[in-house]
């Protein structure tokens, strides 16, 4: 049987979900017998192949125009999309800024922060992605097939979801593999 092709990417994320993915430890050897990891944020290839892949995994919330493009590209090129981690599933901790107007968030970070030199401005070079007014979950931008919440999701939950998919079943999270923190 041909290997299942998997592509990963991160959006507004902290890499905690990827750390948790690596926490499946030696099981990754078994996983790679069945899976081809084509593109990930920490390997050379960043984009899923134009020809598509079987499974796409996105961690992080959608906070700016660049992340929205990444999400759209992944959705377009994968058959099954997994939202990995609370930020991808619900917006998570990134949505803390949704309780404040965007301009005051930018000012706080770039102008008012105690560690900033006086006279700093909010950067607005054209090559920098534009922050959205509101941080959104991945499923508010593109259709998500499998939700894997957790901050981060336990390694066992990630292992469970991937092995269920490899076995041809839709994973249903309960008990110890369903957590929000």
């Amino acid at each position: 049987m041909a290997k299942v092709s998997v592509c990963m990417n991160w959006l507004d994320a902290c890499a905690g979900c990827e750390m948790s993915f690596l926490d499946i430890d030696e099981r990754i050897v078994e996983l790679l017998k069945h899976v081809d990891l084509l593109s990930t944020p920490i390997t050379d290839l960043k984009h899923p192949p134009v020809g598509g892949c079987d499974v796409g995994i996105l961690s992080g919330a959608v906070s700016d125009s660049h992340q929205e493009e990444v999400a759209l590209e992944m959705r377009e090129r994968c058959k099954i999309l997994i939202a990995l981690g609370d930020c991808a599933v619900t917006g998570g901790i990134c949505t803390m800024r949704n309780f404040f107007p965007l301009q005051s968030v930018l000012n706080r970070a770039y102008v008012e922060s105690e560690s900033n030199a006086p006279g700093q401005k909010v950067p607005n070079a054209p090559e920098i992605a534009k922050l959205h007014q509101q941080v959104k979950a991945v499923d508010q931008i593109v259709k998500v097939d499998i939700y894997l919440p957790g901050c981060p999701p336990p390694a066992d939950a990630i292992w469970y979801v991937l092995t269920e998919l490899l076995a041809g079943r839709t994973p249903v999270l309960t008990d110890k593999v369903l957590t929000y923190d």
Partner: peptide
Amino acid sequence: AYKHGLDSWRYDR
């Protein structure tokens, strides 16, 4: 929410 298997939120916040 755990008991009812809530793995995602359906509505906008």
